[in-house]
């Protein structure tokens, strides 16, 4: 049932879509039928898979970098009220800036290559990671903190034997949110200036009215996102068998 139901749901939607294109006689350059989309993928399978891997790599490396920067940043914020007061509002402000608006500047700074895309990914990913880590660490139950205090535990022990562990389920919520944003961030970067990647495929195919190809690229993007999201869900289940109650989504 766990696999059958989502597959069934997708088949229903694809079926309705197909039916609509036939019944209403919609032109393929407006809305292609599922068959058109599959056909345009089969025309260029090697090329599309290559573009998929490029976008995937941008998203994953940007995501990895966000974790590597975001988690220590959250530790600093939780560890020091001064740092929190100094930098937390700045972080919120940074998150409030529309990433689409920053993208052209980022491309000017870092060029058309992969680094501008990775930076875009970091910009969209880092906020949920920092917030979920910091709030998870701050929500450590009082009696557990008191237990550590009663053992005269050092700050390092309190952080790494207690708070960080306690935050893990919440960190995973942030990570799952961030990983889907990562794909969006990579695509924004590619839209603005790139020579490769699925976002580039979509923007060029739009210009030549090859809607089926754009749809194929979008389907591949969706597959990447789903794979990354459920990959993390699976990792969480394996790594945190104790955190049953947090697994709502």
């Amino acid at each position: 049932m766990r696999i059958a139901l989502p597959v069934l749901g997708m088949l229903v939607i694809v079926g309705l879509w197909w039916l609509a294109t036939i019944v209403f006689g919609i032109e393929p350059f407006l809305v292609p039928s599922p068959a058109d989309v599959v056909a345009s993928f089969l025309e260029l399978p090697g090329y599309l898979l290559e573009q998929t891997l490029i976008t995937l790599w941008e998203a994953v490396s940007g995501f990895g970098l966000s974790v590597a920067i975001g988690v220590p940043l959250a530790l600093l914020i939780v560890g020091s009220q001064v740092l929190e007061r100094m930098f937390y509002p700045l972080l919120v402000a940074l998150n409030a800036v529309p990433k689409v608006a920053i993208a052209p500047i980022v491309v000017v700074w870092f060029g058309f290559g992969i680094s501008s895309k990775v930076l875009m990914v970091v910009l969209v990913c880092i906020f949920p990671i920092v917030v979920s880590t910091a709030s998870g660490m701050k929500s450590t139950p009082r009696d557990l903190v008191e237990l550590f205090r009663s053992l005269d535990a050092s700050r390092t022990h309190e952080f790494f034997k207690l708070r960080l562990w306690h935050a893990l389920p919440q960190i995973f919520v942030g990570l799952k949110l961030a990983v889907t944003l990562a794909v969006i961030g990579a695509v924004i970067g590619e839209f603005v200036g790139a020579r490769a990647g699925l976002g580039y495929v979509i923007s060029t195919s739009g210009a030549s009215a090859d809607t089926s190809l754009a749809f194929a690229a979008m389907a591949l993007l969706a597959i990447i996102s789903v794979a990354l999201f459920y990959g993390l869900t699976f990792a969480e289940r394996k790594l945190l068998p104790w955190a049953e109650e947090h697994r709502d989504f």
Partner: peptide, 29 residues
């Protein structure tokens, strides 16, 4: 370190096994 405190709730660390929970004070101290 020669005074221990026990609470109303068990206050165990959910990610640690029973043994690792019991060993926590020895580890921290």
């Amino acid at each position: 370190r020669d005074v221990s405190l026990m609470f109303q709730r068990p206050a165990l660390l959910p990610w640690r096994s029973v043994l690792a929970n019991v060993l926590l004070p020895a580890e921290v101290l």
